[in-house]
Design a protein around this nucleic acid. Structure first.
Lengths: 134, 134
DNA sequence: TACGTTTAAATCGTGTACGATAAACATGGG
DNA sequence: CCCATGTTTATCGTACACGATTTAAACGTA
């Protein structure tokens, strides 16, 4: 069954990332949030959730932790007070440089060629598209 | 980054399984444990963990819940009192028939052909092998 | 037999996930 | 302007995950 492979490959990935992220003081999901913010902060909670497939019930506590360690700042959007805008602090922005090698280390750990990675990624996206539209 | 795709594809899979498993009263990880047991109970806690990439800290509470709803029985192995042997109850065995359609429904939801699924599975296993040996 | 080492589960604390619900705010129609 | 409706985030309870530690049983060696 494919779900077995997906389930444990995901865990294996998290395990490979752990030693890379520990020095940065980030968990794997926290890292994914930071990567999302590095691509263009500020973002609303909902926007971040959309990218990662998470909702406020998961993100709110996580973002509060990231705020507590000084990497992000949360503030109500003045145009729409329902939204919470999440922005990087100086420290959060600086972390990007320190995390620069993480993707390379991680992809090296896969043992796959660039070609193979690209291919797997395309297939995963197709799977995802199917799952989401079902 | 591939980890994003793997991370969210795994979540998407869990979401597809949920409506299929709710009628059975199982969570997604619980279902994976039951599938493992259906392939040949009894199994020790360690053996189940080996198959799913989990350890006793995750499995012990989960197995206790499965025991509480009457699907499995846990008992110390008389040959080696360190081990806990996990076996199916009558009810746990009977559930296999009720869950017979789940894999088909799930693979239908992927929107992939059998060929594509086999291919993706092979690539995932290769990835996994790489990640585990790193 | 005694004892240090290894192994298998369990326990504990922290951090995700997520369904269900609540609270605060925006918006459109009357 | 008011209210019904929808949207966005937060809160709560339950269930994984996992690192670190503990407990108990098995094993090896003197």
């Amino acid at each position: 069954m494919m779900c077995f492979d997906l389930y444990s490959a995901n865990h294996d990935f998290a395990r490979v990332y752990k030693p890379l992220l520990d020095p940065l003081g980030l968990t794997y999901p926290q890292y994914l949030v930071m990567v999302t913010l590095w691509t263009g902060a500020p973002l609303s909670v909902g926007k971040i959730g959309q990218r990662l497939g998470l909702e406020s019930n998961t993100l709110t506590p996580m973002l509060k932790r990231l705020e507590a360690i000084g990497l992000v700042r949360r503030s109500r959007d003045s145009l729409d007070e329902r939204r919470v805008s999440v922005d990087l602090t100086e420290s959060g922005r600086a972390l990007e440089a320190r995390a620069a090698d993480v993707p390379n280390c991680a992809s090296a750990a896969t043992g796959l060629s660039l070609e193979e990675m690209r291919d797997l990624q395309i297939r995963l996206r197709k799977l995802q598209k199917g799952l989401r539209s079902s």
